[in-house]
Design a protein around this nucleic acid. Structure first.
Length: 496
RNA sequence: GGGCCGUUAGCUCAGGCGGUUAGAGCACCGGAUUUUUAAUCCGGUGGCCGCAGGUUCGAGUCCUGCACGGCCCA
């Protein structure tokens, strides 16, 4: 037997043994909790002296000689309990006094249940005066510090459960995420859209420009890709006869991680037959303003110190006209050297490597996108960077497309959808040429089955894709996309 | 990919001018305490100072490399 001091991990495991010796199961099966902390706190005055059965995790303890106060945290918040000497027993052990038991065996981090009466203390704090204490779960690791909480970003991401235990605000962010998705579903369902599920694993990836994750299906003896978009499948549903369709699509892009990008993200794509992109602008305006209002009760929100106004209608600016004006040359017809020169001047990486259209798009992001604050539709993009959009009905070299920007972030992308199979095939072939010239983000294979589908006839349609994580960032005032993703990937850390 | 910053006890942080044995608070252990709410008071346990080299009589501290993380830029 060593006299070496024991660390807490060991001490707590020994408490488990002692609990067993007392006949108390440290990990029992169930407890009949019949009230939420928030309900008791909000309605305390009407509920005084009534009996309740409550449970939660011990987050604070204040131990006096013959009286203990503790805060139990449930999903909704903290509630105080009080245990007086010789007034409460421990479930399953008739003779044990709950005060003594709590003092010795109940640590911060453990779950307990209590049955008792709701009272208010001298200071007016709603409190359950315990009559019977139930031990529910022993925690053998120490929780983060009670006042500052968990601060280390790495631990916050790697051990999100700890962050959630620790921070009620963090719980709010992720609850809000769920609420936002719920509200979007409601909004679309109310307008006759039907939610469908399409393949996550795709034999030919498409619908966007991005590097994919690749995998292999043993049963089919074939390569498959995690989808970078579900666009081409939702359009097949329009061909199939559905008129308003949508899908929340977890998409995967094997690219960099930063404040706005993450390899698996949540997109929402929606398509409506017989609509054009003007109808989709209306939908985007209505949906976003509805969301902001349903969450904040107003159209104005503050994000990272910036005020953003979501009152519809949103501003519209022309991609080509605006960019031509900013650069001082005609974007469509400018010679490549001129564009390159400008890109170099703006300090864009790859100014001497990227093709003209990618340079133009980078120039756009830098000169215009980054400057946008309030929601703004950027409309009528160059045809060459929009292979799935219909040619503009009036303006040559342009397509009927818009991107919605908020505070420099691209939030949505929409078109009057291209439904001419011959044009579509030609555009895909043009894209392939761009790939051959070094744009590796363009899918290497044409999805001929999609062309085939169009050949049966897809009705005229408007389509839109939203970046849901970014919308959630805006509505939860999150600085980084990782702050709205529960379990973000980090590099593996060597085990000790 | 580039720049800057960080990594010290389970957690939150000091120490950074190289000098015996590395500090505090929380948590935990022991004691006192019947109205606290970050309770308080007294006493105690707990460290490969991210990892590996180097400089030096001597490194948590200075130098180099690496790892992980954060922020900014591309």
């Amino acid at each position: 037997m060593s006299n070496a001091p024991k660390d807490e991990y060991t001490v707590r495991q020994e408490k488990i043994k002692e609990l067993l010796e007392l006949g108390v199961n440290p990990y029992p099966y169930k407890f009949e909790k019949n009230v939420k902390s928030i309900y008791l706190k909000q309605n305390a005055d009407n509920l005084l002296n009534k009996e309740f059965s409550f449970a939660g995790r011990i987050v604070l303890k204040r131990v006096f000689g013959k009286l203990i106060f503790a805060n139990l945290r449930d999903e909704y918040g903290d509630l105080q309990i009080a245990i007086e000497k010789n007034k409460a027993n421990v479930h399953g052990t008739e003779e044990l006094d709950a005060l003594k038991f709590f003092k010795k065996y109940c640590d911060i981090g453990d779950f307990i249940g209590v049955k008792g009466t709701l009272i208010k203390t001298k200071t007016g704090e709603p409190t359950i005066l315990v009559k019977e204490l139930y031990f529910l779960t022993k925690g053998i690791r120490q929780l983060p510090e009670k006042w500052h909480g968990l601060q280390d970003k790495e631990l916050i991401y790697r051990q999100r459960y700890l962050h959630l235990i620790d921070s009620l605000e963090a719980r709010e962010v992720f609850k809000k995420r769920t609420k936002i998705i719920y509200e979007i579903r409601k909004f679309l369902n109310d307008r006759g859209f039907i939610e469908f599920e399409t393949p996550v694993l795709q034999p030919i990836y498409g619908g966007a420009h991005a590097k994919p994750f690749k995998t292999y299906a043993n049963a089919l003896k074939t390569d498959l890709y995690l989808r970078i978009s579900d666009e081409l499948y939702l359009k097949r549903l329009l061909v199939g006869g559905f008129e308003r369709v949508y899908e929340f699509s977890r998409d995967f892009r094997n690219e960099g991680i930063d404040r706005l990008h993450y390899p698996e993200f949540l997109a929402l794509e929606a398509y409506a037959a017989y609509w054009d992109y003007y109808d989709m602008m209306k939908l985007a305006e209505d949906m976003l303003s509805y969301l902001v209002k349903s969450i904040y009760g107003t159209y104005e929100i503050e994000y990272q110190g910036e005020k953003i106004n979501f009152t519809p209608p949103f501003k519209r600016i022309s991609y080509i006209d605006e960019l031509s004006q900013k650069t001082g040359f005609d974007i469509i017809n400018a010679r490549e050297e001129v564009i390159r020169e400008k890109a170099k001047k703006e300090g864009l990486k790859g100014w001497n490597k990227l093709d003209r259209w990618r340079l133009i798009d980078k120039l756009f992001d830098k000169l215009i996108g980054d400057e946008i604050k309030d929601p703004t539709f950027v409309i009528d993009h160059p045809r060459a960077i929009s292979p799935l959009a219909k040619a503009h009905r009036e303006k040559p070299d342009r397509v009927e497309r818009f991107e919605l920007f908020v505070l420099g972030m691209e939030i949505a992308n929409a078109f009057s959808e291209l439904n001419d199979p011959i044009d579509q095939k030609r555009r895909f072939e043009e894209q392939l040429k761009q790939r051959e010239q070094g744009n590796t983000e363009i899918p290497p294979e044409i999805d001929y089955d999609f062309i085939n589908a169009l050949e049966y006839g897809m009705p005229p349609a408007g389509g839109i894709g939203f970046g849901i994580d970014r919308i959630i960032m805006l509505l939860t005032n999150a600085h980084s996309i990782r702050d709205v993703i529960l379990f973000p990937q980090l590099r593996p850390r060597e085990e000790d």
